[in-house]
């Protein structure tokens, strides 16, 4: 697959000027910058950063890619989820109704890989394109009104990517996303260390405990110590 490159360089080179300055600083796995992604290719990572940032754009809080969501998705696709650990994969495969759910004949990693390739071919200007174009394409994908070819239904592809992006923004930072508790800080979720027996009936009182993740070390941001392999799931 020949994907020996710096992930920082890949992610830095992908979007508009404003995000460009922020990315190298906020990128989640600075310590792993010299290592390749586990699963994604350069083009896929670029595409995903554009796509995820359309779903969760930067405002007062980081965008999806700034919060490490591309790293999160990379790990998910490389791990059991991407390989179909949570799916019944016995054939035959038929197109079903929406009510019958996921009927794609590919495990998620391969589905997303082929889906991104088909979408990039249909919309070559997407990654790095302007906001209007990205919004338009993402909307059409979410409505299932993009033809990606047989076996690659558009709406399930969108659902898969949106669930991953959303999960990456809010899952425990040990999975590579939610960097520096970006998602938890945004909503005010205190995290995995949860003991509210004295407080649940204190009405309308803020609980401003800074978030603590599963691997929280006082003073750190809850991601895995560099050099350790992040959690795959």
């Amino acid at each position: 697959m020949g994907q020996e490159f710096s992930r920082r360089a890949v992610l830095a080179g992908l979007t508009s000027g404003a995000a460009l300055a922020a990315l190298p600083v906020n990128h989640a796995f600075a310590a792993l910058d010299d290592k390749p992604f586990y699963f994604l290719t350069r083009d896929e990572a670029r595409f995903l950063a554009s796509f995820c940032d359309t779903l969760i754009p930067e405002d007062e809080y980081p965008s999806a890619s700034q919060a490490g969501v591309v790293d999160f998705i990379d790990l998910q696709l490389a791990g059991p989820y991407g390989k179909g650990r949570y799916l019944y994969m016995q054939g035959p495969f038929f197109e079903g109704t929406e009510q019958q759910g996921y009927q794609v004949s590919l495990p998620p990693a391969e589905f997303i890989r082929q889906g991104i390739a088909a979408l990039a071919e249909a919309e070559p200007r997407f990654a790095g394109g302007d906001d209007g174009l990205r919004l338009l394409v993402t909307t059409r994908l979410s409505e299932g009104s993009v033809d990606l070819g047989s076996g690659l239904p558009a709406k399930p592809l969108f659902d898969e990517l949106w669930t991953l992006t959303n999960s990456g923004y809010f899952a425990d930072p040990m999975y590579g996303g939610n960097k520096s508790y970006a998602g938890w800080e945004m909503v005010g979720f205190p995290g995995a260390h949860a003991y509210y027996l004295s407080f649940v009936d204190q009405h309308n009182v803020p609980y401003p405990q800074p978030p603590m993740g599963i691997n929280h070390q006082p003073g750190r941001d809850g991601s895995m110590p560099s050099g350790l392999k992040p959690q795959e799931l």
């Binding site: 260390h193 003991y195 027996l197 004295s198 407080f199 405990q209 929280h216 070390q217 006082p218």
Partner: peptide
């Protein structure tokens, strides 16, 4: 560690 915070370093305000 259910209640006493990361590595037992406490879970303010009550623990």
């Amino acid at each position: 560690v259910n209640c006493h915070g990361p590595q037992g370093t406490g879970n303010p305000p009550s623990v």
